[in-house]
Design a protein around this nucleic acid. Structure first.
Lengths: 333, 333
DNA sequence: GAGCATTTTGCAACCGGTTGCAAAACGATT
DNA sequence: AATCGTTTTGCAACCGGTTGCAAAATGCTC
């Protein structure tokens, strides 16, 4: 139904090749020819079919954006930044929701059928092997918010989760807490494991401080709330480092709902600094993850892989920092 | 690089047409042939190129998912439901972020270049003309969360915003408020206009009740908070119907942050019933918008348009209902 | 095993573009 | 005006599939 190259060529009285050339930049076309073609094209309302041209050029400018996290509000920011960043570079995000899938094979097949030029895996809970299987299928891939590895097999952009754990521990120690805990996300998630590891590592240097940990079933408000309610049944710790902000807010709700106060009775520190953490009625002390930088860097990386698919895989980690708000008690003295 | 139809045909010692047929269902292939082809295909790891086939079939199974709302957490639920629903039907969402665009021409061109089979516009703030320009370009379109029109030009699926306004008014009246207000979203948004209209309409039947209204600059926490802070400077109303839940939560934060209580000093009712509204520390009374039904219906509609593009445009409205939580005072008596 | 209807298969053209190559047009030089 | 080097243009093959049509194969019946 929409006009094709041939229609334009006929109307302009030139060859199809000539039309094609006027629409691919860098091709040799005389000014006269260009005028003729452009006139015919606008008269017909022609715009080239990107999919047809992808057949010969081997480029679709389609990027698979794969995620399994459609419940944490931080991911709305993530999608916003990714879609805008990709669009600005003339790339189109093909969204894949992995929420109920476990097997990568399906989504790999699907993305190959649409011959995406590259894939961005945006998730802190998917195992590293997931991104790897895209690479094995010959598709350039970047794992955003993925796990640090000293010998990376795919590009990873994210934060040093273990360092965040240490950072949280130092912050709690600095404020004089003597009985602290980690309230993590799902036990299997690599991000949870790493944050816990760092947390324990740092606290191991302070044997006088009691440490414990437990896991919520998901990175979600309700999971955080439920887990904290369980902790409150027995004698709770003085302060909790929660796996992420949403968990923290759930935990916060459990604490205040039980008639205790934050930070009076219990201190809380989260991770992410999602928009909501700054809301007046939440005001969560947290560790800021520079998601905008992470995403910018991920896009830059995937773009560079379009030119050079065999680019040596690297890990890019961005520093986090503590954002002080109102859920930890002040530094003593 | 990936194996093509031809490779499979050669390996199986059959014609390319035969291979094509074994991969299109409903085509006539003998069991023997099918076995031969499938064997060769799995050996080579072949899977058909959806884009190439779209050239002849005219179907890409790509659906443009267009939105300008990447800040309201409710839209994460929206994206989740849309992507899952489309995937389940073998369709692929091509995400378009309209946040900084105002002119539809660009996105229309882009979606036509990728020959999407249809477009879903998911937004309550885009003008009706936006969806229309897709239709004019010959692309099947559904406007989800769009405005009701008695003579619709495109498919609209959503709620009756005016009725929601009336519903909120009735709820406030029922609880004995005598001085009420509408704290709307951006003045230009059709959803805001309609909600206000309904709200005023219902209150016009109760001249003894004072009514006023004002608008926030966006459907966002900060806008709601700022606007409510302004209202609090002067003598505020007894109760506010806020344009949506995010605005309500912002307003809630402004009220409690000013040392007043909800619903003691000021009552609040929102609209959407986003997940967060039910969180213990928010506990917002609100009007539930059945987003899952709206999205299911939108998908059903766009799917049916793939078969029958000239389907007569209809408006589908879903009923809302009040979810009673803790931000309005109890019914007197 | 011949004759027939039915199914299966391959040929070849086509979908909407791109691109290597050679012919045509152009411009400069003598 | 003839020669030569450059640029511009068109031809035709190709990208990875699909599909109408006719030929080949199959299954039945007698």
């Amino acid at each position: 139904m929409p006009p094709t190259l041939k229609d334009v060529a006929e109307r302009a009285g030139v060859s199809r090749a000539a039309v094609s050339r006027t629409f691919t930049d860098g091709a040799s076309v005389s000014p006269k020819m260009r005028r003729k073609v452009e006139k015919a094209a606008t008269e017909l309302g022609y715009s080239p079919n990107a999919l047809a041209s992808s057949l010969t050029t081997g480029r679709t400018k389609l990027i698979g954006l794969v995620s399994n996290n459609f419940h944490n509000p931080i991911f709305l920011e993530v999608f916003d930044l990714f879609t805008r960043g990709l669009q600005d570079r003339g790339l189109r995000p093909l969204l894949v929701n992995l929420s109920n899938e476990t097997d990568p094979a399906n989504s790999i097949r699907m993305l190959r059928q649409y011959s995406v030029d590259g894939v961005v895996v945006a998730s802190s809970t998917l195992p590293p092997g997931f991104a790897k299987s895209f690479r094995d299928a010959g598709v350039p891939v970047v794992h955003s918010f993925g796990r640090y590895s000293s010998s990376p097999e795919v590009h990873v952009v994210g934060i040093d989760n273990a360092e965040c754990g240490r950072m949280a521990a130092r912050e709690l120690i600095r404020r004089g807490y003597r009985d602290v805990a980690f309230l993590g996300g799902p036990e299997g998630a690599t991000s949870t494991q790493d944050r816990l590891r760092g947390f324990l590592e740092e606290l191991a240097r302070h044997p006088e401080i009691a440490v414990r940990h437990s896991f919520a079933e998901a990175y979600s408000f309700n999971a955080g709330r439920r887990e904290m309610l369980k902790r409150l049944e027995d004698r709770p710790a003085e302060a909790y480092f929660c796996g992420d902000d949403v968990l923290s807010i759930g935990a916060l709700s459990a604490v205040t709902g039980s008639g205790l106060t934050v930070p009076g009775d219990i201190g809380l520190i989260g991770l992410n600094d999602m928009e909501m953490a700054g809301w007046e009625n939440i005001n969560l002390t947290t560790i800021r993850q520079p998601i905008s930088e992470i995403i910018g860097s991920s896009i830059e990386l995937i773009v560079s892989m379009l030119e050079n698919p065999d680019r040596y895989p690297e890990t890019r980690l961005f520093p986090c920092r503590v954002i002080e708000r109102g859920t930890l008690r002040p530094v003593p003295g």
